[in-house]
Amino acid sequence: MDKARDQFICLEQNMKLKFRRPTGGVVGLFLAALRDEKKIIGSECRNCGKVFVPPASYCERCSSDISALREVGPRGIVISWTLAPKGFDNSPADAPFRYIMVRPMGADTPLLHVSPDDERIRIGTVVRPVFREERTGSITDIKWFVPDDEDKRA
């Protein structure tokens, strides 16, 4: 009987869930601007002056309502980075690649994104986004950020 019991070690359950989330107008504009205009949009708080990217309808520093949207970047500065040596399911880029925190010019907050595993990617490196041909209205419409001097080197 102990043997039979051993077959009941764990219960496995599989679940497939589909989500549909309203963006709210401001995030919706950010995503649409990536898709339709290849632009990065931030929100500026007219009370405390901070510029957030991605934008929000509220200021998370001083709680004011935000109504001013601004184009930021598209170039940005790398604030930090780490290496992703191995790929995984739905990996945002082919491994190896780097995750970067990039602060678009004119914004006060960094975005999390990816870059090639390029030794030139360091803290302080100026990078620019490479947009995909097919864009869907998602942060991944930017394929990745590359060093801004890439064209000159090539």
Binding site: R21, P22, T23, G24, G25, V27, A56, S57, Y58
Partner: peptide, 13 residues
């Protein structure tokens, strides 16, 4: 029935 005009933080705000 569905508050599709706002995202969750905006709704709670």
């Amino acid at each position: 029935d569905h508050r599709n005009d706002v995202n969750t933080p905006e709704l709670v705000r």
